[in-house]
Computed example of a mutant assay.
Amino acid sequence: MQKVLIVHAHPEPTSVTSQLAEIASETLKAQGHEVMRSDLYGMGWKAVFDGRDFPVRANQERLSFIDESGHAFAKGLQTPDVEEEQRKILAADAVILVFPLWWFSMPAIMKGWIDRVWAFGLAYGFEGAGNTYRYGEGGFAGKRAMLGVSVGGPAQDYSARGINGPLDQLLFPITHGTLFFPGMQVLPTFAVYGAGSIDAEGMAAAEAAWRSRVERLFDDAPLAFRPQNGGDYPDRHVLADHVAPHLSGLVAHIDHEPAEKKKAAEAAFPVQREEELSP
């Protein structure tokens, strides 16, 4: 049995987002896992990260979020709501973030959850070592993470040459930054497109696909983000010249070689899928 935290952000209980969160919970419980929930709208989560997060300040003269976050985390002076969410995430073996794509990112209330819960000393500045432990290492190392996203527009708008840009690249600041930065292993994103006008048949198909993805939460391979301390970044800042020299931008920070090797192996030794063996 594993422990999974589901964090979801939508105020409407009948929304696609809310349905995805409920389906994930049902599926995991059916597998015997323990599920923790954080319904951010239902909780009335305080989204704004400000001075009220530090009732006992280290410096009354100037508000430094890094200094005050580190002080509050180290001294046990965080607000109770933040401490409770940190307790959940530290206990979890995996975290699923379920949200609608609003203006190409997560809703403000979920961004505020990240801002307040990802404390200095935990999600960054781990063990007082600055940036030594990040991108594959850190306070959340060993945990898995996955996004379940409801998207209003059609899939073609988010395709490789779609007008909105590829969804994986739009969500890179979340998958690579928010989740991989503090050490989580991030699975490919699951998306429901056309969520604003989806019919019963489309929702049934989305539900079946989502259940399958959730069932494989602890089995599927994570995205091959390059770890900071794996040798690809000699100075911990910039990729070495010999690493993916033909690539730049976001895609350069994903190791495509394992996928290419797998594709070559499958071509050489094709495997029949279960459905292909059915009569």
Rank of each mutant, 00 (worst) to 15 (best):
H71M: 09
A72R: 12
F73G: 00
A74Y: 09
K75E: 14
K75I: 04
K75M: 15
K75P: 08
K75C: 12
G76V: 02
G76L: 10
L77N: 03
L77Q: 03
L77G: 00
Q78I: 12
T79C: 01
T79P: 03
P80K: 00
P80I: 00
D81T: 02
D81Y: 08
D81H: 02
D81R: 03
V82Y: 02
E83F: 09
E83A: 15
E85M: 12
E85P: 11
Q86T: 08
Q86F: 07
R87M: 12
I89A: 10
I89H: 08
I89E: 14
L90T: 14
L90N: 14
A91S: 11
A92W: 01
D93L: 01
A94Q: 09
A94P: 09
V95F: 13
V95P: 07
V95G: 03
I96Y: 01
I96F: 07
I96K: 06
L97R: 08
L97V: 06
V98F: 02
V98K: 09
F99N: 11
F99Q: 06
F99V: 00
P100W: 02
P100V: 00
P100E: 01
L101Y: 01
L101I: 03
L101P: 14
L101E: 05
L101G: 07
L101K: 03
W102P: 15
W103A: 14
W103Y: 14
F104N: 03
F104S: 12
F104L: 14
S105F: 11
S105E: 13
S105W: 07
M106F: 06
P107A: 01
P107S: 04
A108L: 11
A108D: 09
A108V: 13
A108M: 15
I109S: 03
I109C: 04
M110I: 04
M110Y: 10
M110H: 06
K111Q: 08
K111W: 00
W113R: 12
I114C: 13
D115S: 12
D115E: 07
R116Y: 01
R116N: 07
V117G: 02
V117C: 03
W118D: 15
F120D: 14
G121F: 12
L122H: 13
L122K: 04
A123P: 13
A123R: 00
A123E: 10
A123G: 05
A123Y: 07
A123H: 04
Y124W: 15
G125W: 08
F126T: 05
F126W: 13
E127H: 07
E127D: 15
G128P: 02
G128N: 03
A129G: 08
A129Y: 02
G130V: 07
N131R: 12
T132I: 10
T132G: 05
T132N: 09
Y133N: 09
Y133A: 04
Y133D: 01
Y135C: 03
E137G: 02
G138L: 09
G138F: 09
G138W: 06
G139I: 09
G139W: 13
G139S: 02
F140Y: 13
F140N: 08
A141F: 01
G142R: 05
G142D: 09
G142K: 03
K143Y: 05
K143M: 00
A145C: 15
M146P: 15
L147K: 08
G148P: 08
G148H: 05
G148Q: 04
V149T: 10
S150N: 10
S150C: 06
V151I: 01
G152M: 01
G152A: 02
